[in-house]
Every structure is written in C-alpha cells, then in structure tokens.
Design a protein around this nucleic acid. Structure first.
Length: 298
DNA sequence: CTCCTGTGGCTAGCTTAATT
DNA sequence: AATTAAGCTAGCCACAGGAG
C-alpha cells in the first residue's frame, strides 16, 4: 500500500474502524474526526484523514480493476495457475499463504482422492479438483465485501456478477454463509485465523497487519503438504486477538443488529441488518472503507 | 531430552435438500 | 429461480504420548 499504512498496527486499524462505524456521517465534520481520533490511540486527526484517503484510493483501485483478479473461470478453475496472482507469498499471514500459495496451487498436485464417496474410479483429476474447491483468496474476499457493501446481503447474484466475478452466486452465498457464521462466533475463544477475519478491504493488508495466527508449525517441516505453514513466524497459537472479547472488533456486539451505516462509511460488520427492498444502503458495511463509485468490472 | 507420530479440534469449500 | 440451511469431506494445526 503506502508508506503511511505501515505505521498502522492492527489494533489501530480496528480502533479506527470502530470509531468510523460509530462517528462517521455523510458530511464528515471536524468534530467527528475529533471523536474518531479520540478512539484511536496515537493517531492525530490529520493522520486519520490521511489514512482515510489511502483507503479510498485502495477501493478505487480495486474498483478500477487495478487489482488483479484471477482469471480462472468459476469452479472449473484449472488447477495450478489459478492462485497466487498476487505474485508473492512472502510476508503474508499464514492464512493468506494457505489461500494463495499453499493450498491454492497445491490442490492440483496432491493426487489424493478427495471425493470421499467416489473412490479412485470416481472421477477425473479435473473433477476431483472441482470437488475440492478453490480457496478464497484475500482479494476475492475483499471484492466480496465490496459487493456486500454495495448490494447488501442476499443479492449474491449481483455480487458475483459485478464484484467476485471469479465465483458463482452459489459460491458467493456459501462463502457469505460461512463468513457470517464466523462473525457471529467471534467472541469465542480459541479462534484460529481465517480469511473471514478480514472484515474490511483494508483490514488485511498483509504487509502491515499480520494476523495473530497460529503460525506455529510443529508438523510443517515434516509434512510436505504443509509447506505453506513454514513461512510465518511462530506466534503462539490460540491467542485471542485484541478487542475480541464480547464486543469484538466490529463495533457492536455480535448478533446485535446495527442500523445501516452512513452511505459512505462502515457501521459494523457481522451484524446483518435487513434492508427494505430496493434499498441499496450498505446494510452491513465491511468496516471502514469508503464507498466506492459505482463502477463495475464488466 | 529430543524427535516423531497419532489424534482431535477447527475451518474451508462444496453439494444437496428445503424454503421463499 | 434464487436463497438458505444442513451436512459432508479434506486440510491445517497444536498437543500428547511413545520411542530413541
């Protein structure tokens, strides 16, 4: 991203997102920025504004297609070349590694029988891969969040068509299902990292925000299939991320509906809010990122 | 004491059936 | 037809226990 983002810790990002969720209004006034700043330790109003601008740029870049999107087609993703379109697996969280580096490309080469009910004669290699599924990348997840913001919960078809074009509506719906389940269980202890921990398109900048994940790898070195786990530093696993208890990092207690946020900024995530039909306010805004202009990919 | 292996928990992604 | 809910399979990881 940009140099400024490096100075932001994960905690600060979350605090910022929470503050935005609470204090942001359509016409962001100076007093609102002051309130937001009061909730983000070690950050000035100017820094917050600057950070906001950076986020805005990110979203615009994504919307404009500057962020590469995988070219594999839906579930037929043809094995090896499908993942790692970010180009590098270094310096990312283990979750991302699993998504983009480890499993993504690894699936095609395992040569196992993933069917479970098919046996060896069950199907072709391609079919096995199809059944196996392609892990969602962070980029896809962020696009999903963008689409969720724009179309709201339920319109998986539009999200699939306009945002996560590499996934079918069914896949998007399935992903969303797991996503919300995860959000609703955020207050539990013993959480392992997941791609679903990313609740905003900026929240997972791998270069600046290593997730407090399990990175420990007792078996990784010995297990060829665990190559992806070798990378990250051995952070003790099952350490609950900060701000997780009860309230969580999402600005509101899980399961508590939150009114749809301002049109441009986040209110909360993980607390689905039912919108009136035809209302395209972000029902659940994936945390603090600005609403992108209505540009479509296709 | 160190290393290796087995086991259980957790998560991701998918399919299918049920529902709207 | 689209969405949701339930269930299944597979992979990753940490931990416990045994072998050296």
């Amino acid at each position: 991203m940009s140099p400024a983002s490096i100075e932001w810790s994960r905690e600060e990002e979350k605090a910022f997102e929470n503050a935005i969720a609470i204090h942001w209004t359509d016409d962001s006034k100076e007093q609102n920025w002051s309130k937001i700043a009061s909730m983000v330790p070690n950050k000035t109003v100017e820094e917050l504004k600057q950070h906001y601008e950076l986020l805005l740029e990110d979203v615009i870049a994504i919307e404009a297609g500057k962020v590469p999107v995988p070219k594999y087609v839906g579930e037929e993703a043809s094995s090896s070349s499908t993942k790692d379109f970010h180009g590098s697996c270094g310096g990312v969280t283990s979750t991302e590694k699993r998504s983009n580096c480890g499993l993504g490309s690894g699936y095609s080469g395992l040569g196992q029988d993933p069917n479970g009910h098919g046996g060896k004669g069950g199907g072709s290699r391609a079919e096995q891969e199809r059944r196996k599924g392609i892990p969602w990348t962070e980029e896809e997840h962020r696009l999903f969040l963008l689409g969720l913001d724009k179309f709201g919960k339920g319109d998986w078809r539009s999200i699939s068509r306009n945002f996560v074009i590499s996934r079918t509506p069914t896949q998007v719906a399935s992903h969303a299902q797991k996503y919300f389940i995860r959000l609703n269980s955020m207050n539990r202890d013993r959480r392992r990292s997941s791609i679903h921990d990313i609740t905003s398109i900026n929240g997972g900048d791998p270069s600046t925000q290593p997730l407090p994940i399990t990175g420990h790898q007792t078996n990784a070195a010995a297990n060829p299939t665990n190559m992806a786990a070798i990378g990250p530093p051995p952070i003790k696993h099952r350490i609950p991320p900060p701000n997780m208890a009860g309230l969580g990092m999402y600005g509101a207690p899980m399961g508590h509906p939150v009114a749809a946020g301002p049109s441009h900024m986040a209110s909360a995530v993980g607390t689905p809010v039912m919108l009136t039909p035809g209302h395209h306010h972000p029902y659940v805004v994936p945390l603090a990122y600005p609403m992108a202009p209505p540009t479509m990919h296709q």
